[in-house]
Amino acid sequence: MNPVIRGIIIYLFLMLVFRLSGKRTLAQTTPFEFILLLIISEVTQQALVGEDYSITTSLILITTLIGTDLLFSMIKQHWRGFEKVTEGSPLIIVANGRMLQHRANKTRVSEEDVLEAARNLHGLERLEQIKYAVLELDGSISIIPQEAAE
């Protein structure tokens, strides 16, 4: 198959699968998930290159992937709706020290995940010290402490 078409198919498939699997999949929350991402990249590389190890194919594939990404970023810039469809939007999961359990369940975020982010980012000790926790587009959790918000 033509490397350009192969590159575009792989790009679109990965985008679809990661979008479907949710924001937390990309967050590399555990060492195992990090290894999983490495395995996915290895499998993707094989699907992209196949048996063709020529420099020409590599250059075509790099250009295809960067070109597709550039095209998507331009579409996102001009049409905000497309960005929301492909990347979603941030979501508040803790408000005023209270875990919004239904939101957290839907996005597969646990209280432990929030507390871990709170400890790492601000050295906070308890959930009550958090004004807001926001699940960002990249799957990370932003913490706004109570005192900072006041």
Partner: peptide
Amino acid sequence: QTIENVRHNLQLDE
């Protein structure tokens, strides 16, 4: 489950 509505003062398009 009904998803909680939150009134917040963050500049955030939820």
